[in-house]
């Protein structure tokens, strides 16, 4: 026989609408305690309830990658995760990359290379690159391409993005590295 689910687990509908639910998790290292409707995605909760608008709405179907965030350290698509699924987990958004006023080396390299044009996809690329470089400090160009393959950029043609990740990787390995002369726009 199946055990009944304890009543406390069930959201009771009121006035025809399911009641809001409370979720506790961490965002960028800080504990949050949020009340929201069960059908809200993590993306909506981050943007609308926590005012973290760095994570972007894109296709809403997992095809463009613009909404990537880290959940328990792994990149996932916040448009396909329900907010309630974040319960008890660690969420990192692009707002968590910089250390106070100091940009993350990946952010620094993206800025230097002009790897962001309209910037809409940039948070997803940077967060995904961060996880890649934590696991693999010296990725090949192909490994970078594979790791970043979830995100679509319609401005840059990707080359500057890959070069920025390579520059950041070199700096994070402690090497003296700078932007390639020929990559600087206008020279």
């Amino acid at each position: 026989m199946s055990a009944p689910v304890p009543l406390t687990h069930i959201t009771r509908a009121r006035n025809g609408r399911p009641a809001k639910r409370r979720a506790q998790f961490t965002v960028n290292g800080e504990p949050v305690d949020v009340l929201f409707a069960p059908h809200k995605t993590l993306l909506e909760v981050l943007r609308e309830d926590l005012n973290l608008t760095g994570t972007k709405h894109g296709c809403e179907l997992g095809e463009c990658g613009a909404c990537a965030v880290l959940v328990d350290g792994e990149p996932v698509l916040a448009c396909l995760v329900l907010g309630l699924d974040a319960e008890g987990r660690d969420v990192t958004t692009v707002e968590g990359m910089a250390d106070g006023p100091a940009l993350h080396p990946i952010q620094e390299a993206f800025a230097q290379y002009g790897a962001a044009q309209c910037g809409y996809c940039t948070p997803s690329f940077m967060l995904t690159a961060q996880v890649l470089l934590e696991k693999n400090p010296s990725p090949s160009r192909d490994e970078i391409r594979e790791a970043l393959s979830s995100s679509i950029c319609r401005c840059t043609g990707y080359v500057k993005i890959y070069e920025a990740v390579e520059l950041a990787a070199a700096r994070m390995r402690g090497e003296e590295a700078d932007i390639l002369e020929e990559a600087i726009y206008g020279r």
Partner: peptide, 16 residues
């Protein structure tokens, strides 16, 4: 659509 949410923690709860 708006829906209510249940966390199942065991196979029996999920089947139920």
């Amino acid at each position: 659509n708006a829906f209510e949410w249940v966390n199942a923690t065991t196979v029996d709860e999920a089947i139920g």
